Amino acid sequence: MRLVLVALLLVLAACGQRPGAAPAPDPLRGRTFLATGVTDDGSPRAMTLSIEFTGDGRLIARASCNMMQGDVDTSGGRLVFEGGLATTDMGCDQERHAEDAFVARVLGGEPTWKLAGDTLTITSGRNRFDLAPREAVEPDRDLVGTTWELDTLVDGQVASSMPAGARPVTLVFDGKTVVADTHCNGVRGDYTIDGDTINVELGPMTRMACAPEIMQGENAVVGVLSGKVSFEVTADRLTLTHPSGKGIQLHAK
């Protein structure tokens, strides 16, 4: 009688395990979160951060400069990278590199994660990222009708900020024409959009020589707004990239 009971318990246990059953879906896959608060060693840290969980099982993190990504295992309430966390190698200023290093250190330390409703919390010791769905925090702004202010210059793998104290350079797209206010020469052109590409035909410009910090912003805009340029709007940021590798990044005012 005892042998029969033991055998029955083993059968019931095996049935409870449901061999071959599909694992529970990952609630993070296919979602992008933006930081609403960052804690560094117990103290608040002001910085931007987005974390995307792709449909194919990767995590992509973007802080102030480089992009980090890797295949991630989210089971067990931890983020564990299989094969490590790879990063791009853009040259940025010291502050941006420090923010990248902080994010890489937290994510690379197998932090815990918890999803409560739509709020995601990632914790590693006294470091914590509080995040919310991107669409709730920062819906994508419209390319047309938004005033975009230049903040980052990109040349291949090197990114730099606009010079301190420089007057703001802005772009406005009205559906047919793009106008750049560079505080020096007039920059204006007609454009058409095809998917994620803008085809720009700049009009004639004056050739005044202005202060170096002004010319730096103007030259960057003119160098990018020429011919077919790829563009991406993510939340309140616009990225324009020329086939030459030159690019500019702007934020919505």
Rank of each mutant, 00 (worst) to 15 (best):
T121A: 15
G77E: 03
A101G: 12
G70R: 02
V11D: 06
M162W: 00
P139L: 02
G16S: 15
V6M: 09
R188A: 08
G20L: 05
L79R: 05
T48N: 14
D142I: 01
L28F: 06
G195T: 01
T146G: 13
L131K: 01
K253T: 06
L225F: 02
G77W: 00
L107H: 09
R78V: 11
L120I: 09
V221I: 15
T74K: 04
G165A: 13
L115I: 05
G37N: 12
A61Y: 02
G165M: 07
G108L: 13
T197G: 06
M208T: 06
R207G: 05
G189K: 12
C65N: 13
D142P: 00
T87Q: 15
G30Q: 12
E232W: 00
E110F: 03
M67R: 15
R141T: 02
P23C: 10
G20I: 06
A61K: 09
N185P: 13
L34N: 09
A24C: 00
D140E: 09
D41G: 11
G57R: 08
D40P: 02
R188P: 05
V11Q: 08
N219K: 01
K253P: 02
K253C: 02
V144P: 05
M205E: 11
L115W: 03
V224S: 07
P139E: 06
G91F: 04
